[in-house]
Simulated scan of single mutants.
Amino acid sequence: MSVRIDITGLRPEGIAVVPSPLAELGMALHALSEPAHHPGLQGWVTGVTARLDPHLADRMCEADFLWRTTFSDLFLPFAGLPGASGLPGQTLAEELDLLDKLSDEQFVDAALEFTCALPYSGPGPGPLGDARLRRRALELAAARGPQQVLFSERLLADPPHIRRWLRQFLQDCDEAFFAETWARLRHQLAADARHKTELLRRRGLADALTAVSPAVALDEAAARITVDKLGDGRTATAGGGLLLVPTSLGWPHLMVLHRHAWQPVLHYPVGSPEPAAPPSVEQLTLRMSALSHPVRMRLCRSLARSAFTTGELTQAHGMTAPEISRHLSVLKKAGLVTTRRRGRYVYHQLDVTMVARLGSDFLEGILR
């Protein structure tokens, strides 16, 4: 599973690495709504929440489906501008002006896409112009509770009103807590953007993408970028550009904007506290599957305590040597067991460090 970006015809000058204050505000709202996703931000979340005006906190809940369960493309409005080559604004006010430039159809589609399962990667009508999709959006919104169905009804009935509401809400968040946060973070993000831009200039796109995340790979022969994600998607630069937008508050989320007719955007975390090379989704699936068998679980119990030969495991577990070898092969293929030779004997042992990382690797894989 992955998201693929066709970059056929993409010119070097069409690639830009630019911080976005509006995107970072979106990640700030997500972290405040889902602090468990961001254990490293607990101090910041506690501090902001403690001094948050109760009225603003209530308003934050009204449309939290835009940032709580996922990350709405509304926080990357520059990608939806005509020509597919727009850039983020330097200030939040500039980016809110860009948000105002989206059509009502773009605004509503982006606001309802994830939670109401509307078309994303391909062309098609939206709920403003299609009565069937409108009913579908409201049905799915109802499954998420009365608050979301109320907001969705208001959005579909009067998009300009909701647009004004959202702009005022974001401005109030900026005044309440984000301006101070952005003043602290923007220097780190600008430094990262300069570093990635220099990598692009000196060493090319492949090295720059590797620096963005080990989960991003470039196939130059196929003119394709592949992002290892627990999901599938396709998009193309198609004569437009490619944007890389760093986030300080976003780890572990590595997101790809692949909305049809919008400019592709890689929204990537900087300053990740995790190891530099997390496993791919395929590797993670392989490891978890390897540990799901009860026999291999019992083998791991032995191998966690000491190194054993195949013959010793055969005797200890009352199984044949071929059976033990098959289970060991699965564990070794998953990278969970190490093997070393001592004289004429081959010893197997559980890689405890690798197993200990499975919890955080799993979280990163599903949240990436």
Rank of each mutant, 00 (worst) to 15 (best):
A290W: 04
G318Q: 05
A290S: 12
M297P: 00
P294C: 04
R296Y: 00
A307P: 08
T314F: 07
T320W: 01
R287K: 15
R301E: 14
S289R: 15
M288V: 14
A321I: 12
P294Q: 05
L299I: 09
E312F: 01
T310M: 12
R287I: 01
S306N: 13
R298C: 03
R305M: 06
Q315A: 11
A307G: 13
R296C: 01
S302A: 12
S289H: 15
T314G: 12
A321E: 15
C300Y: 00
S292L: 04
L303M: 01
S289K: 14
T320Y: 01
L299T: 03
A316H: 10
S306R: 14
S289L: 15
A290N: 06
T309P: 04
E312I: 01
H293G: 04
R305D: 05
E312R: 08
G311R: 14
L286K: 10
T320L: 07
H317R: 11
L299Q: 03
L299G: 02
R298F: 02
T309R: 07
T285M: 13
T310S: 14
P294V: 05
Q315E: 14
E312Q: 13
A321C: 10
L299F: 04
A304H: 06
V295M: 12
E312T: 05
S302K: 05
G318Y: 03
L313Y: 07
M319A: 15
A316M: 12
